[in-house]
Each structure stands twice: as C-alpha cells, then as structure tokens.
Computed example of a mutant assay.
Amino acid sequence: MKSSDGASKGLNACEEALKRILDGKPVVPEHVGLDLSKLTASIVSLEAGFDRGYLKKSRKTHLPILAKIEACRAEANKGSGSYNGKIIKRLEDKLVLLEKELAMVCSQRDKVLTQNLQLWARVRELELAERQNKSRRVRLHH
C-alpha cells in the first residue's frame, strides 16, 4: 500500500507542478515564461521535483496527466498563431507610442538647446559690454 501512496503523492506533486506552470508561477527558474507549446512531461517532472523521466506512458496512473500535458501543448500550438499575432500587434502599437514620445522629447531637447545657446550668446555680449565699460571708466578716471 505504501508504494501506491507514494505514487499518488508523486502524481499530486506533478498535478500541482502542471498547475503552477499553466498559471505562470513555476518554482523552477527555467520554467518561468515557458512557451506552452514546448511543454513536456519531463518539464512537469522537473517542476515537481523529480527527474526528467518520472512521468511515463507505461504507468497507467500517469496517463491522465500525460494527456493533460499533451492537450495543453496542442492547444498552445493551435492558438499560437493568433496569440503571437496579438503580441506582435501590441508591441507594434507600443513602438508607435514610443516613437511619438521620442519625437516629442527630441523636439523639447532641441528647443532647450536653442534657448541655452541664445542665453550663452547674450551672456557673452553682456560680459563684453561690461569689459568695455570698465575700460572706458578707467580711461576717464586717468
């Protein structure tokens, strides 16, 4: 009875691991952001804390979870075109917004640089005028 109890604990661990992967909350760092079209029994086994070969088709008790894994992978493959299309569209929209923001920021930068150059030129004029006034005052006093 102990062996079947251990097997059910292992199977429960694999079920929980599969759920974590599907929920996007795996504990194994390599499984974070996993493309579900790449989901395999070995990935679920590793996520559950077992070696890659824990889940086997030859074990009848493993067949249901193996079927779930296959179904998830098939579903991801089926929908990957539209899913990838949505991701691409969202990224393109984001790119357009970033390009507009970049153009606005560049325009603001150019305006500020122009103002700074005008201020610098005015300061140079005033410094030159001040020097000329000092030299006139010195000549007038002598």
Score class of each variant (00 low, 15 high):
Ser4Val: 13
Asp5Pro: 00
Ala7Val: 02
Leu11Ala: 03
Leu11Val: 07
Asn12His: 11
Ala13Thr: 01
Leu18Tyr: 06
Arg20Trp: 01
Leu22Phe: 04
Val28Gln: 11
Val28Ala: 04
Pro29Ile: 05
Asp35Arg: 04
Leu39Trp: 04
Thr40Lys: 09
Ser42Leu: 09
Ile43Leu: 01
Ser45Met: 02
Leu46Phe: 03
Leu46Ile: 15
Glu47Lys: 10
Glu47Phe: 07
Ala48Trp: 00
Gly49Ala: 05
Phe50Thr: 01
Phe50Asn: 11
Asp51His: 03
Gly53Phe: 02
Lys57Asp: 01
Ser58Gly: 01
Lys60Met: 05
Lys60Asn: 12
Leu63Arg: 13
Leu63Trp: 01
Ala67Glu: 12
Ala67Trp: 04
Ala67Ser: 13
Ala71His: 03
Ala74Tyr: 03
Glu75Gly: 08
Ser80Gln: 14
Ser80Thr: 06
Lys86Ala: 06
Lys86Ser: 09
Ile87His: 07
Ile87Cys: 05
Lys89Asn: 11
Arg90Gly: 05
Asp93Arg: 12
Val96Phe: 09
Glu101Ala: 15
Cys106Asp: 15
Gln108Glu: 15
Lys111His: 15
Thr114Lys: 14
Asn116Trp: 05
Ala121Leu: 10
Val123Cys: 05
Arg124Asp: 10
Glu125Val: 10
Leu126Pro: 05
Glu127His: 10
Leu128Ser: 11
Gln132Arg: 13
Lys134Cys: 05
Arg139Pro: 00
Leu140Gly: 06
Leu140Met: 10
